[in-house]
Design a protein around this nucleic acid. Structure first.
Length: 424
RNA sequence: GGACAGGUGGCAGAGUGGUCGAAUGCGCGCGCUUGGAAAGCGCGUAACGGGGAAACUCGUUCGGGGGUUCGAAUCCCUCCCUGUCCGCCA
């Protein structure tokens, strides 16, 4: 949620920012509604104050006799009824305003390149080179079933299209990656590991910004008012919702492995072949709750943690500095890490590292306090480090051999019982 | 799923219709004390929102929502959560 005070103080800044995002938002009507809400509030509160004063005085009135008491009660009751009526109006207006605020996107940081869509994203770094093959490299959707480590047909039988079942060395490789990612974050990068619930209440989805705007993107268990998490960002960021954290405990650096469930409504067709876009996938997420003044630098550190993993795996990747038009709803700045898949002949997004500034913190009421100071909102950051399926794809496609086998990068071998190569 | 007991400030914990935004303790801040610190002593210390240049002031908030009442932390209804016991169960 954006800061309404800031919007009042400098509406033009927000107009420009939203325009850069390609959003047309009627700032004037928003401000008009806000003014109405506040006017209504002043009215309600004035009446309430009168009611309170009248009630307080009633004790003394009682001593003047029953008739006086009854008169005083009647008067107070009348005031109370008036206050209730005005307050009901206020409530309606306030709900209207809140509904509008909840679907307003965040404002991008000044450093974000201005642009309309993905074509304006800037490649801000590239690591490694495209691997060269003496043969025509295969895509994972051919390679992996041939090695008997991915089964798309049986997954479809169980759950329909957009699912995959990993088998044997495929399942184990996925598990090895998860363990190595988590170990790196906890042992080297100073993260604390969580294993959170995968089902959360819809309130949490409001906190991180998926709701109310993106209701069709995730799976809901409506009988229980729970949703399947589309990313660990949701439970992890909301862990401290409503709390006031001591400043010296910041930054909180959390990591978690969870499955992620996404309906991917409207995504059918392009770029969905094989395991590149599935309804359920594993991901290791990193989340920071940090101080506003360090959050921009922290984002670079977080991004570095994700990049380090790709480097250790020896995978060619690039970093996109997303432009204003391509930056996600709640994000103020996002770097996407895309890994090269030589078989599919495509860049695959394996990580998205973002700062949400205080956007999520306002929604989730996530604050911190310096000793003796006032509570203020933290900044929240998160990033994938990394998403499993596309790492698997890149690994398999990058390290495939002419005979259809796949070699394992040295860093993963300890997690695979020393396995050096996957063969049929 | 059933029965019972609970849910109060940053934390612990008192509070059964007005004098309660709420005792007390801890924590935290400032001061005194001290060579310095600890202890001790004194004072201060909830959040959010409105108005105001400010001093300040008004409103809301005692798990959520609703109700009774002139007035609710306190009474009633309902939902959620926690604990204990029972049931069920990986």
């Amino acid at each position: 949620m954006i800061d309404l005070n800031a919007l009042r103080a400098d509406p033009q800044r927000f107009r420009n920012a939203w325009q850069d995002r390609g959003e047309s938002i009627d700032v004037d009507s928003l401000l008009a509604l806000d003014a109405k809400v506040r006017e209504s509030k002043v009215k309600t509160e004035g009446l309430r104050a009168e009611v309170n004063a009248a009630s307080k005085a009633i004790g003394a009135v009682a001593k003047q006799g029953a008739a006086a008491l009854e008169a005083a009660k009647a008067k107070a009751r009348e005031l109370g009824d008036q206050a209730k009526a005005v307050d009901a109006e206020r409530e309606v207006l306030e709900r209207q305003l809140t509904d509008k605020l909840l679907i307003l996107p965040n404002v991008c940081l000044p450093a974000v390149p201005t642009g309309k869509d993905a074509s304006a994203n800037v490649v801000s770094a590239t690591w490694g080179e495209k691997p060269q093959f003496a043969f025509t490299p295969k895509a994972h959707w051919d390679l992996a079933p041939a090695l008997d480590i991915m089964d798309f047909d049986r997954a479809a039988k169980l759950s329909g299209s957009g699912f995959v079942a990993l088998k044997g060395a495929g399942a184990r490789l996925s598990r090895a990656l998860i363990s190595w990612f988590l170990d790196t974050h906890t042992l080297t990068n100073g993260y604390t590991e969580w294993a959170p619930p995968y089902l959360v209440s819809t309130q949490q989805m409001v906190g991180t910004g998926q709701l109310p705007k993106f209701r069709d993107q995730f799976y809901a268990c409506r009988d229980d008012d729970l949703v399947l998490i589309p990313t660990a960002e949701v439970p992890i960021t909301n862990l401290h919702a409503g709390e006031i954290l001591e400043a010296e405990t910041l930054p909180r650096k959390y990591t978690a492995h969870t499955p992620c469930f996404r309906r991917e409504a409207g995504a059918a067709g392009v770029g969905t072949r094989g395991m590149t876009r599935v309804h359920q996938f594993d991901k290791v997420e990193v989340v920071w709750l940090t101080r506003p003044e360090t959050s921009e630098a922290d984002l670079m550190t977080l991004r570095g943690h994700a990049e380090w993993l790709l480097q250790q795996l020896g995978l060619h990747y690039r970093v996109l500095d997303l432009c204003t038009g391509d930056t996600g709803f709640g994000s103020a700045r996002t770097f996407d890490l895309e890994v090269w898949a030589p078989g599919a002949n495509a860049w695959l997004e394996v990580s998205s590292c973002s700062t949400f500034t205080d956007f999520q913190a306002r929604r989730a009421n996530l604050r911190f306090r310096d000793k003796g100071g006032k509570p203020q909102f933290v900044h929240t950051l998160n990033g994938s480090a990394l998403a499993l399926p596309r790492c698997l794809i890149a690994l398999i496609e990058t390290y495939q051999q002419a005979d259809g086998s796949v070699t394992i990068p040295p860093v993963l071998r300890p997690y695979l019982g020393g396995l050096e190569k996957i063969t049929k």
